[in-house]
Measured scan of single mutants.
Amino acid sequence: MIINNLKLIREKKKISQSELAALLEVSRQTINGIEKNKYNPSLQLALKIAYYLNTPLEDIFQ
């Protein structure tokens, strides 16, 4: 099972779900679904998340 630290990292960087969704060009519901482990992001989306949060991919999804 993948450990998902997206919410923790996003909140630590003081970025809202809506702000991150806008940067990634996805819906806020997509971010919410990823954070609640209801949706697994594509590799492309996971890499974009890591880029915009300036955090290694391995720290977000373990």
Score class of each variant (00 low, 15 high):
Gln44Arg: 11
Leu24Glu: 00
Pro56Glu: 07
Ile3Gln: 12
Leu57Tyr: 12
Leu47Glu: 13
Leu57His: 05
Gln62Ala: 11
Lys7Tyr: 09
Ala21Thr: 01
Gln44Asp: 14
Ser16Gln: 05
Lys7Gln: 10
Ser18Asp: 14
Thr30Leu: 15
Arg28Met: 12
Leu57Thr: 05
Ser16Tyr: 03
Lys38Asn: 11
Lys7His: 06
Met1Tyr: 13
Ile60Val: 07
Lys14Ser: 08
Ser42Gly: 11
Val26Tyr: 00
Tyr51Glu: 12
Lys14Glu: 07
Ile34Gln: 01
Ser27Met: 04
Asn5Lys: 07
Leu6Met: 11
Ile49Thr: 01
Pro41Leu: 08
Ile60Met: 04
Ser42Pro: 14
Arg28Cys: 13
Ala46Trp: 14
Leu23Phe: 14
Ile9Lys: 02
Tyr39Met: 10
Ile60Phe: 05
Lys12Ala: 14
Glu58Gln: 14
Ala21Asp: 00
Arg10Cys: 06
Gln29Val: 10
Lys48Ile: 03
Ile34Arg: 00
Asn5Phe: 06
Leu47Thr: 11
Lys14Thr: 05
Leu57Met: 13
Lys14Ile: 04
Phe61Asn: 02
Ile2Ser: 10
Ser27Lys: 08
Ser18Ile: 11
Lys36Ser: 15
Gln62Pro: 15
Ile49Val: 04
Pro41Tyr: 04
Ala21Ser: 06
Ala50Pro: 00
Thr55Ala: 08
Glu58His: 12
Glu25Thr: 08
Pro41Lys: 01
Leu20Val: 00
Gln17Phe: 03
Tyr51Arg: 09
Lys12Pro: 01
Ala22Glu: 11
Leu47Arg: 12
Leu20Lys: 02
Lys7Met: 07
Glu25Gly: 15
Ser42Asp: 11
Leu24Phe: 00
Ile3His: 13
Val26Ser: 01
Ile9Val: 10
Ser18Trp: 13
Ile2Pro: 09
Glu19Gln: 15
Tyr51Ala: 10
Ala50Met: 04
Lys14Met: 10
Arg10Val: 05
Ser27Val: 03
Lys14Leu: 08
Pro41Gln: 02
Lys38Met: 14
Gln29Glu: 15
Leu53Ile: 04
Pro41Gly: 04
Ile34Ser: 00
Ser18Gly: 12
Asn40Ser: 14
Lys13Tyr: 11
Pro56Trp: 05
Gln29Leu: 10
Gln17Cys: 05
Lys13Glu: 07
Ile2Asp: 06
Asn40Phe: 11
Arg10Asn: 01
Ala22Phe: 08
Gln17Trp: 03
Asn5Gly: 06
Lys36Met: 14
Thr55Pro: 03
Ile49Asp: 00
Phe61Pro: 01
Ile3Ala: 12
Lys7Gly: 06
Asn32Met: 14
Gln62Glu: 11
Ile3Lys: 14
Asn54Cys: 10
Asn4Val: 06
Asn4Leu: 06
Asn54Pro: 02
Met1Leu: 12
Leu57Ile: 13
Ala21Pro: 00
Tyr52Lys: 05
Leu8Trp: 09
Ala22His: 11
Leu43Phe: 14
Asn40Ile: 15
Leu8Gly: 10
Lys12His: 09
Pro41Cys: 08
Gln44Lys: 11
Asn37Trp: 09
Val26Ile: 12
Gln62Met: 13
Asn32Asp: 15
Asn37Ile: 05
Ile3Val: 13
Ser18His: 10
Glu25Trp: 07
Lys36Gln: 15
Ala21Gln: 03
Ser42His: 07
Glu58Phe: 09
Ala22Leu: 11
Ser16Val: 04
Leu20Cys: 03
Phe61His: 01
Thr55Lys: 03
Lys14Arg: 10
Lys36Arg: 12
Asp59Gly: 06
Glu58Lys: 10
Gly33Ser: 15
Ser42Tyr: 04
Leu57Asp: 02
Gly33His: 15
Lys13Ala: 12
Ile60Lys: 01
Glu35Ser: 02
Ser16His: 04
Glu25Tyr: 09
Phe61Glu: 01
Lys12Thr: 11
Lys7Trp: 05
Glu35Asn: 00
Ile2Gln: 10
Tyr52Asn: 04
Ser18Arg: 14
Asn40Cys: 15
Leu45Tyr: 02
Tyr51Pro: 01
Pro41His: 02
Asn37Gln: 13
Lys48Pro: 03
Ser27Gly: 06
Asp59Ile: 09
Lys38Gln: 12
Glu58Thr: 14
Lys7Cys: 08
Ile60Tyr: 03
Gln17Lys: 07
Asn5Ile: 06
Ala21Ile: 03
Leu57Asn: 02
Lys12Gln: 11
Tyr51Trp: 11
Phe61Leu: 05
Ala21Gly: 05
Gln44His: 11
Glu19Ile: 06
Ser16Lys: 08
Ile49Cys: 02
Glu11Leu: 09
Ala46Gln: 15
Arg28Pro: 15
Ile2Cys: 15
Leu24Cys: 15
Ile60Arg: 01
Tyr39Glu: 08
Leu20Gly: 00
Leu47Lys: 14
Tyr39Cys: 12
Asn54Leu: 05
Ala22Cys: 12
Pro56Phe: 05
Ala21Tyr: 03
Thr55Leu: 06
Asn4Glu: 02
Ser18Ala: 14
Ile2Tyr: 13
Ile49Met: 06
Ser16Thr: 15
Ser16Arg: 06
Asn54Lys: 11
Leu24Gln: 00
Ala21Cys: 04
Ile2Arg: 11
Gln62Ser: 10
Glu11Ala: 06
Pro56Met: 04
Phe61Ile: 04
Ile60Asn: 00
Gln17Asp: 04
Glu19Ser: 09
Glu25Leu: 09
Ala21His: 02
Asn32Ile: 15
Ser27Pro: 14
Leu6Ile: 08
Leu53Trp: 01
Thr55Asp: 01
Gln29Thr: 11
Ser42Ala: 05
Leu20Asn: 00
Leu45Lys: 01
Ile15Arg: 03
Lys7Asp: 02
Asn5Arg: 08
Val26Ala: 02
Lys48Phe: 03
Pro41Trp: 04
Ala50His: 01
Glu19Tyr: 09
Thr55Gln: 06
Glu25Arg: 14
Lys14Asn: 11
Asn54Tyr: 05
Ile9Asp: 01
Lys7Thr: 06
Leu45Met: 07
Leu43Pro: 14
Ser18Met: 13
Ser16Trp: 03
Ser16Leu: 05
Asn54Phe: 05
Arg10Gln: 02
Pro41Asp: 03
Ala21Met: 03
Glu11Gly: 05
Met1Gln: 10
Ser42Leu: 04
Lys13Phe: 12
Lys12Ser: 14
Asn37Glu: 06
Asp59Pro: 02
Asp59Gln: 13
Lys48Cys: 07
Gln44Leu: 08
Leu57Ser: 04
Leu57Gly: 03
Ser27Asp: 13
Phe61Gly: 02
Arg10Ala: 02
Lys12Asn: 11
Glu58Pro: 07
Leu6Ala: 02
Thr55Val: 14
Ile34Val: 05
Ile15Met: 15
Leu6Thr: 02
Ser42Arg: 06
Gln44Glu: 14
Thr55Ser: 06
Val26Asp: 01
Ile34Asn: 01
Ile31Tyr: 07
Asn32Glu: 15
Ser42Val: 06
Leu8Pro: 08
Thr30Ser: 06
Glu19His: 11
Glu25Phe: 09
Glu11Cys: 08
Leu57Phe: 10
Asn37Tyr: 13
Val26Pro: 01
Phe61Tyr: 05
Asn4Tyr: 05
Thr55Cys: 08
Asp59Trp: 07
Met1Glu: 10
Thr30Arg: 07
Ile60Gly: 02
Ile2Asn: 09
Ala21Asn: 02
Asn5Trp: 08
Ile34Lys: 01
Leu53Glu: 00
Pro56Arg: 11
Pro41Thr: 05
Pro56His: 07
Tyr52Gln: 07
Ile9Phe: 10
Arg28Gln: 15
Lys36Thr: 15
Leu45His: 03
Gln17His: 04
Glu11Asp: 08
Leu20Tyr: 01
Tyr52Gly: 03
Phe61Val: 03
Ser16Cys: 05
Glu19Thr: 11
Val26Lys: 01
Glu35Lys: 02
Leu53Gln: 00
Pro41Ala: 06
Pro56Cys: 06
Leu45Ala: 02
Lys13Arg: 10
Leu45Ile: 07
Asn40Lys: 15
Asn5Val: 05
Ile31Arg: 01
Glu11Gln: 13
Ala22Tyr: 08
Ile9Gly: 01
Leu23Ser: 08
Lys38Glu: 15
Arg10Ser: 02
Thr30Ile: 14
Ile15Gln: 04
Leu45Pro: 00
Lys48Leu: 06
Tyr52Asp: 00
Asn4Phe: 06
Ala22Arg: 15
Glu11Trp: 06
Thr30Tyr: 15
Asn40Gly: 12
Ser16Gly: 06
Gly33Leu: 15
Arg28Ile: 15
Asn37Ala: 09
Ile9Arg: 02
Ala46Tyr: 05
Ile34Trp: 08
Lys36Leu: 13
Lys7Arg: 12
Glu35Asp: 03
Ile60His: 02
Glu25Ile: 07
Gln29Asp: 15
Gly33Arg: 15
Leu45Val: 05
Lys48Ser: 07
Tyr51His: 12
Ile2His: 11
Ile2Met: 12
Leu53Ser: 01
Lys14Phe: 07
Leu8Phe: 13
Asn5Glu: 04
Leu23Met: 14
Ile34Pro: 01
Ala50Arg: 01
Gln17Met: 13
Ala50Glu: 05
Ile34His: 02
Lys13Asp: 02
Ile3Ser: 12
Glu35Cys: 04
Pro41Arg: 01
Leu53His: 02
Ser27Glu: 06
Ile15Ala: 02
Glu19Ala: 12
Ala46Gly: 06
Tyr51Thr: 07
